[in-house]
């Protein structure tokens, strides 16, 4: 049964021609099937245990009052967690912050990454050096980057000193992370600095799939640089583009480490995020049920976004 299904060319021609070889194949495929399952087993078991089970649990636990450590078994509480969630001001603030972050970071990071990809795609002296330097923040952990910028963002830190020097003392920089109006922009700036190199590489691999002869033909036609970008580079990147949008958006929605290290959601919840709220309730307050409800809402948002973006990019292509 299985062996015929796995061979598309042979399968439709059921019966007739395949018959004579059948007995032999069945004999080999039995051991093959067992050996194959044995090779698959560790990975499948681990994925089931640590991806599928928690995914199902997220659904289940969201409707209970489960606590992380509790002598009592979890009790079904219906929609209580969701009712509480939608009345929770901090959660709405988190949704808003994450939306704000995504709306700014997605175009900023994707655009800057594209400029950088085009710069390092050009074969000039030192290309490897530039690419290495632009990529350096990506291999630096987000925790370290957060610490470094926490230091630079201080009221008397490097960034404000530079601002003061450049403007000849006319502008005094704000207390970046302790001011509700600058805390989120500060986090955004730093996150783009860390992540842009990653997406530069992805754009770069997209650029390298565009055939060089398209550019050569365009050169013969004497097109302008803008036309060249508009009609060759941009359409050639359509697949890469939707991928980059999806990955940056999901990465933006999952914002956590920077917040945990730099602001703990403050000041006045101005930088709290969905994942940060989930960790705060599920870990710090041990309310697994409530945290699962947050995770579930988060998952639905991520799912919707990737479906919508996939749909939009398919329309255009």
């Amino acid at each position: 049964m299985t062996s015929t299904i796995e061979r598309p060319p042979a399968a439709p021609a059921a019966g007739g021609p395949a018959r004579p070889r059948r007995p032999k194949r069945d004999r080999t495929s039995k051991t093959e099937n067992v050996a194959g399952l044995a090779m698959l087993a560790p990975a499948v078991l681990l994925l089931a245990l640590f991806i599928f089970v928690p995914a199902i649990l997220a659904f289940g636990l969201a409707f209970t009052n489960a606590r992380l450590i509790s002598p009592y078994p979890a009790v079904f509480v219906g929609l209580d967690n969701f009712v509480r969630l939608f009345a929770d001001a901090a959660f709405f603030r988190a949704l808003l912050n994450v939306g704000y972050f995504a709306v700014v970071v997605v175009p900023l990071q994707a655009g800057l990454a594209l400029v950088m990809a085009i710069l390092v795609n050009k074969q000039v002296r030192g290309t490897t050096f530039f690419r290495t330097v632009y990529f350096l923040p990506v291999v630096t952990s987000m925790v370290v980057v957060s610490l470094l910028w926490l230091f630079m963002y201080r009221q008397d830190g490097l960034i404000n000193v530079i601002i003061e020097r450049v403007t000849m003392g006319m502008v005094t920089g704000p207390d970046w992370l302790n001011d509700t109006s600058t805390s989120m922009p500060a986090i955004i700036l730093m996150s783009v600095w860390q992540g842009v190199g990653f997406h530069m590489i992805i754009w770069l691999s997209g650029l390298q799939t565009i055939p060089a002869d398209l550019y050569e033909a365009a050169d013969l036609d004497g097109v302008t640089a803008w036309q060249r970008f508009r009609y060759i580079t941009w359409p050639g990147l359509s697949a890469t583009r939707s991928l980059i949008l999806v990955t940056i958006t999901i990465q933006a929605l999952s914002l956590f480490t920077q917040i945990s290290v730099m602001t703990q959601g403050g000041p006045l919840n101005s930088t709290t995020t969905v994942v940060y709220e989930a960790v705060r309730s599920g870990f710090a307050q041990q309310e697994t049920g409530y945290a699962s409800a947050i995770s579930l809402v988060f998952f639905v948002i991520v799912l919707l976004i990737s479906v919508v973006q996939r749909f939009l990019s398919r329309e255009k292509a």
Binding site: A278, F298, V302
Partner: peptide
């Protein structure tokens, strides 16, 4: 079926599973 299920898990960010996973 196995391959499809494996590929399907790619869209799930770890952060959405982290809290239920702690309990688990």
């Amino acid at each position: 079926v196995i391959l499809t299920l494996i590929i399907a898990t790619l869209i799930v960010p770890f952060e959405t599973l982290a809290l239920p996973l702690v309990w688990w």
